[in-house]
Amino acid sequence: MTTSNSTPAGGKRAGSSIKDAVLATVALIALAVVGWYLYQQLRPAPAYTFEVLEGPVESNQDNVTAAQLLDMPLVDEQGQPVSLRERQGKQHLVIVFTRGSMAAVPARSKGPQLPQLPNVCPYCSTQATGIANCMPEFIKEDAAVLLVFPVTELTQNVDAVTLRNTVKKPGEEPAFPILLDVKLQAVDKLGLRDHLARPASFIIDKSGDLRFAYVAKKGSADRPSGNELLRRVKQLNEEKQ
C-alpha cells in the first residue's frame, strides 16, 4: 500500500487565506501609520497668540511680604549684586517675575515656542512687550519696573539679553532693567517654583508696603498685562491726591 504525504486541497486553501488576511492587515496598518505621519507633517500649525490677561485682576497672593521682595538675592546681567533696598522709597517698584530661561528644559516639555525665542516663554515676551509699551506712563507715574529672569546658571543670561532685545527697537536703551535670579534662589524663597518659575507680579509703593501681588495659578498666560500693572500704579497715586 502506498502512503500519500500530500496536503488536502482544502487545507492549502485555508492556509493561503490566513496568510492573505495577515498580509492585508499588515498593509492596512502600514498605510495608517504613513497617513498619520503625513497628516502631522502637512496639517497647519496651531495659531497660538500668546496673549496675557488684559482685564483687571485682583491680588491673589498673601504669603509674600515686601521685606522678602526687597531682600531678594538678585544680580544684573554681568553677575553683579543688585539691592532693591536701595531703591525703596524713591519710586513705586513694579517687580515682574518671568518664567526664566528654558535652556535646561527638554524640547518636548517646553510647549509652543517662538522661533526667535527658543529658550524664553512666549507669554513672558508678550507681557514684557506690553510693559515696554507702557514705560513712558510708568515713568510719568514715578514707578520703576524691574523684570526678574530666573536662571539655573549665570551663562543663561544670554536668554535674558534675547528677551530684552525683543522688547526694544535697535539703537534704543532698554525699557527696564532685567535682573537675574541665579539658581532660582528668590523663586524658592517666595514659593514660586514650578519646573522653572510661575509668572508673578508685585507692586511695592514708595512707603515700602506691598500693594499688589499676583501669582499665576492657571498656566503661563495667567498674568497681568502691562496696562493692568500701570492701572494699579495710577491707583496708588490717586490715593495720595
Rank of each mutant, 00 (worst) to 15 (best):
A14G: 02
V64P: 02
M72Y: 00
S6V: 12
D71I: 00
K183S: 15
P224E: 07
S16K: 06
D181Q: 10
A175L: 10
L230F: 02
G219Q: 01
A14W: 05
V34K: 05
K90I: 14
T25W: 05
V82C: 08
P122A: 08
P106S: 08
M135F: 02
T152D: 15
A32V: 09
N237V: 08
Q68R: 01
F202G: 07
K169I: 04
L163V: 05
D142P: 01
L38I: 12
H195T: 15
F149Y: 10
Q78S: 11
E228G: 02
P177I: 13
A143N: 08
V182F: 04
P8N: 15
G55M: 03
N63D: 10
G191N: 03
A175R: 09
D194I: 08
P8F: 10
Q80E: 08
I178E: 04
S17M: 13
A143S: 07
A24K: 06
A144Q: 14
E173Y: 04
L192N: 03
P46V: 10
V82W: 01
I95K: 06
L84M: 11
C134N: 12
A45D: 03
Y39R: 07
P118C: 15
K234Q: 15
A213R: 07
H195G: 14
F138E: 05
I204V: 15
A66C: 03
V96F: 14
P44E: 07
Y39S: 09
F202T: 06
R232V: 09
V148T: 12
A216E: 14
T155Q: 12
Q116N: 08
L179E: 02
V57G: 03
A47F: 00
K19F: 13
E54Y: 04
L70I: 04
V64K: 05
P81G: 05
P112G: 05
G35D: 05
P106N: 06
V52C: 04
